[in-house]
Design a protein around this nucleic acid. Structure first.
Lengths: 257, 257
DNA sequence: CGAGGGGTTGACGTTGTTCAATGAGCGTGG
DNA sequence: CCACGCTCATTGAACAACGTCAACCCCTCG
């Protein structure tokens, strides 16, 4: 995959309501979200942009002036080691705020690249400040959203540090299945997962070859089939059990506040 | 080490000013912090508590009503895998807000345990709300503090996923040295690191035996000596180079806002 | 003086890597 | 339409990295 350097085709006044509403499901799982709040937010999110697979969407070290909500496609949060290998630290799916933490941090410590073709809508940092000022509950919601990413990071540390090969792959698939389900992107225990074995290796700390063997083992155990970009989970409870997957860390219970 | 279950000896009206001021160095590295702001914060942080090595200071899954600033001692953020092994995800040193993210999250996905004897001061969540309401800059500062933890998590993912044995150990030592320096806990490239090889293994994804061998290799290369609880870095530039350590992810540059 | 935690060592088994070769799928251009 | 090049996946064999087990030591604390 060519490392194309960020060719962003921004287009304004995109009619976001249908998509945006659909993909705010993640927020809705956690907070009550009124019509008014939704309207306040939607009003600010009108600038969309498209990226092709391989594009760098947000570049490490650059000062950010806006944050982005992913509407379509798969993205990856990643960082490079001095000798050039890439470590992926999170996969992002539609409905995820991919770089909301650039609001408090100003400058990101990592990049975000498009895994498949992607569409985003932008939210200016000054609009975030504005929303928070007008309605302080937004601060809580945004802060919370960035903290669930941190929680996912912790689970990945556990995954990389403590789980064996098969369990590790299984856990990644469990997480992505669970997150996809929230935004309505699953169909009878199948979901789109347009991630190559090389990229899975970069996420799991394995060589691509070994990822292939581990996927084959999951297939032989009649738990998972990955055909091109589609993953099917044949035995969800058994897979969860094998992976030691507990969705608690995704914070999907509704809360007040 | 016995897994003692949280025996907290709280004591009120602790005279924190000398310690608190000293250990707000971490915040000061990033934000200008006025006398008034300091006073507002200090006024709320008067309840201290002591823990012994091995105590669980904050327990996974419990609803939290306050957050804690570590004044003395070493602590660890950790989580357990279903089959009982522990994964450590961050070490905490004096000056760290160990569980500030329990404010937005309400309920933590992991535990915090005392590695050595510890002293903390508490800050009630309602006082946090109060501080933010009276002076909105506190929201930014607190949010920022939780985001630097997330950045550290990302670096650990990279460490676990992409670095080999020696480099991995080296990187951990670089991080802890760097963070210790900010709060004035280093002395000529030495610093206290009261972490056993078992615990280092739990943090780095290695067996304790292997950690021993890796430390020996760093010693043989004349880079590091770890004598009991004291680590001495003999060649800081070479160690940094070996580890591929770039302190950027600690966000130590001052910023406005 | 004994118990127990922490560290060290060596032999051996397991897990994952590397390299190189092979094949399937897909878009492109003739 | 086929031929070509490309990316992605698969396989086998040799090799390196790390884990496990068991024995041993040192130090500290009671």
């Amino acid at each position: 995959m060519a490392t194309r350097t960020r060719s962003m085709r921004a287009r304004s006044t995109y009619r976001i309501d249908p998509n945006l509403e659909r993909f705010l499901a993640t927020v809705r799982k956690r907070f009550e979200f009124s019509r008014e709040e939704f309207a306040m937010l939607a009003e600010k999110m009108t600038t969309a942009a498209d990226f092709e697979a391989g594009d760098v969407m947000v570049e490490e070290g650059k000062r950010a002036t806006h944050s982005s909500l992913l509407l379509e496609g798969y993205a990856a949060r990643s960082k490079y080691t001095p000798n050039g290998e890439r470590q992926i630290m999170e996969f992002q799916i539609p409905g995820d705020f991919i770089d909301l933490h650039s609001y408090p941090l100003e400058c990101l410590d990592h990049s975000i690249t498009a895994v498949s073709d992607c569409t985003i809508v932008q939210l200016d940092h000054k609009d975030i400040s504005d929303l928070i000022e007008r309605h302080s509950r937004f601060a809580r919601i945004f802060w919370f959203a960035t903290m669930t990413d941190a929680s996912i990071h912790r689970e990945w540390i556990l995954n990389l540090g403590s789980r064996g090969g098969v369990e590790r792959v299984a856990h990644l698939l469990c997480e992505m299945y669970c997150r996809s389900e929230i935004v309505g992107l699953t169909d009878n225990h199948s979901f789109e997962f347009p991630v190559t074995q090389v990229q899975m290796g970069e996420a799991l700390g394995f060589s691509a070859v070994h990822v292939g063997r581990l996927l084959r083992e999951l297939h032989d155990r009649k738990l998972v089939t990955k055909d091109r970009k589609i993953v099917h989970l044949h035995d969800w409870p058994a897979l969860q059990e094998l992976a030691g997957f507990d969705p608690e860390y995704l914070y999907l219970q509704p809360r007040k506040g």
